[in-house]
């Protein structure tokens, strides 16, 4: 008896549709509706999908995403759920009723959110810079740094080392200042091209690359070229690199 329901997403629809064997491990995916919203699920055992094998996990995650995108394609707006959200039935069993009750309880909120994300998609924007390139620029343009750099040339070996450390410290501070400045500048420019934005944690990159900003953006795919244009301008700046992926279902905005 399948006492669990793996929930992929919530969509705006009233039919108890059957979407075929497109789920994780080729499970049969179908919908449990409540009025005009519906939860897209597959029946499973009440245990989470876990594996030591990276390939297997990747396969599952891709299947999870595929279901969500299929529904999104058919029905327009979806509220995606995270991987491995499995609702279990209580002692009496009826897990389907539980799903319905949950949809009922949060009906207003779910509907509002579906409206909010309708027709929109999530995009990932990551801006990085080459610290070496930028550092060189700064040393060439900043007076304090220029002076210190000059002083070092005239020093003896040991003293030169010490002064180089001071230079590095100062450079570090200037880089941080510059990073802040750029962040705010890009944040404003990108913000004006999209509907909503979320700041995510920076990812560690290989030296001398350093990530400046990691954004999740919610925007209209038909208008996304404005964002594309802005990102193009940024990536054309010497020492700057942009990573732009999407469209994704709106995971970060639900």
């Amino acid at each position: 008896m399948a006492e669990g329901r793996y929930v992929y997403c919530v969509a705006a629809d009233s039919k108890a549709a059957r979407l075929g064997n497109i789920g994780i491990e080729d499970n049969q995916v179908y919908a449990i509706p409540y009025q005009d919203i519906t939860a897209v699920v597959h029946a499973c055992a009440p245990t989470p999908y876990e594996s030591q094998d990276k390939e297997v996990v990747d396969k599952w995650v891709v299947a999870h995403e595929r279901v969500i995108e299929t529904v999104q394609e058919e029905l327009g707006a979806v509220l995606p759920l995270g991987f491995d959200t499995i609702i279990q039935g209580n002692d009496q069993g009826n897990v389907e009723q539980k799903v319905r009750d949950w949809l009922k309880e949060h009906y207003e909120k779910l509907k509002d959110t579906l409206d909010r994300v309708k027709g929109k998609r999530e995009y990932v924007v990551q801006v990085s810079w080459d610290t070496k390139t930028i550092a060189k620029e700064l040393i060439g343009s900043d007076q304090e740094l220029k002076d210190l750099h000059q002083q070092i040339k005239a020093k003896s070996k040991g003293a030169a080392y010490m002064y180089r450390q001071t230079l590095e410290k100062l450079l570090g501070a200037k880089l941080e200042q510059e990073a802040n400045r750029r962040f705010h500048d890009f944040y404003d420019k990108i913000g004006s091209c999209v509907d909503e934005m979320k700041v995510e944690k920076l990812k560690k990159e290989e030296q001398p690359r350093q990530m400046l900003m990691n954004l999740s953006c919610l925007g209209d795919p038909k208008e996304i070229h404005t964002l594309g244009g802005e990102l193009e301008r940024i990536s054309n700046m010497t020492g700057f690199f942009v990573r732009f992926t999407g469209p994704w279902p709106p995971y970060s905005f639900v």
Binding site: K157, G158, A160, Y161, M162, T166
Partner: peptide
Amino acid sequence: LRRMEGGSLTDEEVERLGSALE
């Protein structure tokens, strides 16, 4: 670095310190 910037080291000390650290 702090000692050097604070001015409490002589030139010779700076030189020695720098060489050692290098």
